[in-house]
């Protein structure tokens, strides 16, 4: 593990990604300290331009809400959406993949057909339909995005399980009478995890973007501020107040970049390669 960390710190991608994410996490954590209270509260004249009022450094939006507060709190919710989605998708995918891989036979067949079914339906369409019919709240949105994201991990985990299953240490565990679930938990999963983690970067980035697209179609959670909803709202004033969509947009770019770079660095590091260059 230490070697992985060491390699990671030697890869420029990994370091850049790590820095970006640490910065974003700091923003998210500092949000309640720097801007206590509800970031949606109306604090000033609507559409105050940025850098004109020292108490409102980034200006205000259409209703007079503080853009800076929105940006910081938005970091919190956007990162939450990304991470929670990845967590749900990974957990569901790992569970289904492990069960299918270990059980084999009919169970495997049925589960993999379900995976197929989810995979051939466009994920965004699925999220759109699910959120429309269930109502747009943050947990629902997270779950809906995860619905389209868990199949990748499921396939990967199953493939890993199948390849590991016959290896000596698993066979040995079976011989000494370990319960299959115990084998799965102790032997198979930890080994299948690394490639799945690489997939996480994609899921996190996609989740943040899908949340933005849902907000664009009017399906965001109005009780919290997310970068996606800020961009979706700002697009109507793209000509008159472009900063309203550009500022949160930069946040989005930083997140996706950070996650990807870190993911890349991590994958390289875990594959045991020195990053080049």
């Amino acid at each position: 593990m230490n070697r992985v960390a060491g390699r990671l710190l030697h890869s420029p991608e990994g370091v850049a990604g790590l820095c970006l994410l640490v910065l974003l996490a700091a923003m998210a954590l500092a949000a309640p300290l720097l801007f206590p209270g509800d970031p949606l509260v109306i604090v000033g004249r609507p559409l105050t331009a940025p850098f004109t009022d020292p108490t409102l450094p980034l200006g205000t939006d259409r209703l007079g809400r503080d853009v800076a507060a929105g940006l910081m709190h938005g970091a919190q919710t956007s990162l939450l959406v990304g991470l929670a989605t990845a967590l749900v998708a990974l957990a569901a995918g790992a569970l289904v993949g492990t069960v299918a891989g270990l059980a084999g036979g009919l169970v495997d067949e049925v589960l993999m057909r379900v995976v197929d079914a989810f995979q051939i339906v466009p994920g965004f369409l699925l999220a759109l339909a699910f959120v429309s019919v269930t109502g747009a709240s943050l947990p629902v949105i997270i779950f809906a995005i995860a619905l389209g994201a868990w199949t990748g991990p499921a396939r990967l985990v199953r493939a890993e399980v199948l390849s590991i299953r016959e290896r000596d240490y698993v066979a040995a565990a079976r011989v000494i009478g370990m319960h299959p679930a115990e084998i799965a938990l102790r032997e198979v999963l930890p080994n299948a995890l690394p490639p799945v983690l690489a997939l996480t970067a994609v899921i996190v980035a996609t989740a943040v973007l899908v949340e933005a697209a849902l907000s664009f179609l009017g399906l965001g959670d109005p009780n919290v501020v997310t970068w996606g909803s800020m961009i979706a709202e700002g697009r109507n004033v793209l000509r008159t107040a472009p900063h309203l969509s550009i500022v949160p947009g930069l946040g989005l770019v930083a997140t996706v970049l950070g996650v990807y770079l870190l993911g890349e660095g991590l994958a390289d590091a875990m594959a045991g390669r020195e990053a080049r260059g």
Partner: peptide, 15 residues
């Protein structure tokens, strides 16, 4: 969009 925005406002006002 005005009914939604008023919803956002009303939440703040009642708060």
């Amino acid at each position: 969009s005005e009914t939604r925005q008023f919803g956002d406002y009303l939440r703040q006002a009642l708060g």
